[in-house]
Write a protein that binds this DNA or RNA. Sequence first.
DNA 1: TACCTGATGCAACTCAGTCACATCAGATGT
DNA 2: ACATCTGATGTGACTGAGTTGCATCAGGTA
Lengths: 207, 207
Amino acid sequence: MGRWEPDARGRLLRAALELFAEHGYEATTTAQIADRAGLTKTTLFRLFADKREIVFQGQGELLALVTRGVDEALNDASAWDRMVNGVLVLSGAHAHEHRTTGRILDPILARSPELNERAVFKRSAITSALEGSLIGHGIDRWQAGALADLGIRAYYSGYDLWVAVDDSSTLADHVLAQITVLRGAAAQALEAAAPQPHPAGVRSADG
Amino acid sequence: MGRWEPDARGRLLRAALELFAEHGYEATTTAQIADRAGLTKTTLFRLFADKREIVFQGQGELLALVTRGVDEALNDASAWDRMVNGVLVLSGAHAHEHRTTGRILDPILARSPELNERAVFKRSAITSALEGSLIGHGIDRWQAGALADLGIRAYYSGYDLWVAVDDSSTLADHVLAQITVLRGAAAQALEAAAPQPHPAGVRSADG
DNA sequence: TACCTGATGCAACTCAGTCACATCAGATGT
DNA sequence: ACATCTGATGTGACTGAGTTGCATCAGGTA
């Protein structure tokens, strides 16, 4: 346990968020972060793979979560229901405190291309995990891809809404609502493409 | 024109691909690349924003392409047709030589997390460009998002197929085929979710 | 008291990326 | 020919991320 000051990771995270908010991400050095946390650069890099990971710590667990959600759906669940369950289990991982963190993080993230790139990568990793889990349950790979895109899109826009408002709502509430919205939108978009009952030939829009 | 040896960018790209293939991306230093190209590190970083961009040079133009494709669709084109046109114009940008480059690049890319992250970022940027263009034409934002995801997914899996086979087919051929496949798959996945014929009033997240 | 263990510090290192300044090859004008 | 202008390249020093081997230190155990 904590022989030295406890919770080195937490202290580093808080120090980093403070400094990022004050001076921006790029203008903050890892030495400064370690310094404010009462540690050294070496320890920082022992606890985090790189500077960006300070901000995204724990996102690795999300991959396991979404997979678990897909796996734990009922045996006769449809592809759609498996996807929904994956995204819902994913959403369940966020406590109310994450809302505050999200509010602090968002502007920092928006101003830093480097952080943005990592964020996109995490999103992609989660999407791939969802897609892979669905495929693992025998779902057609193209359906799995489309479902994963839709589900993760719902998750992220639900997250944005959840962070933006200030009520007692759960992340899962917003995500579920977004799934419904996106399902309707996707259906409408596809309807315009394939009005015939049997999805056959497409007319390309020659340029 | 070339007062010195011409085509510095091309020489650097070739040198980089050689070295990456020989020793891997991470094990190759920028100085080595510049050296083999008969240049210096400084010049390398004058021509490329960073080490990763050597491999992804020119992807920035793709954003403009997909936007142009969406813009140049017929005035009364449906949301779907605008998306298709955007993706097709995007596909038209690749000559046959890109196939060879793709074959060399793919294994390098697969072995390097760093390059992978950049690749994902580029994909995301193209998706956002497509989504934004569609929204700019008055298309509902949720539809735009879903359409962009589907279109770019078709583009990338079409690209994979195009690179994998060795015939006279065009990238656009494969992408178009993938759009059809994905449209069918998405329709099927949604059908299981919403069996009711009228996807009517969708309630947005309470806010 | 002696030992063990895991978390931390220290110092030196490599490499990506930046910058100010010098240089060099060719085009232009006289 | 000669001087000059211009843009592409080289030089060398610098910052900061990330790594590594070794020392140290706090606490638990015998």
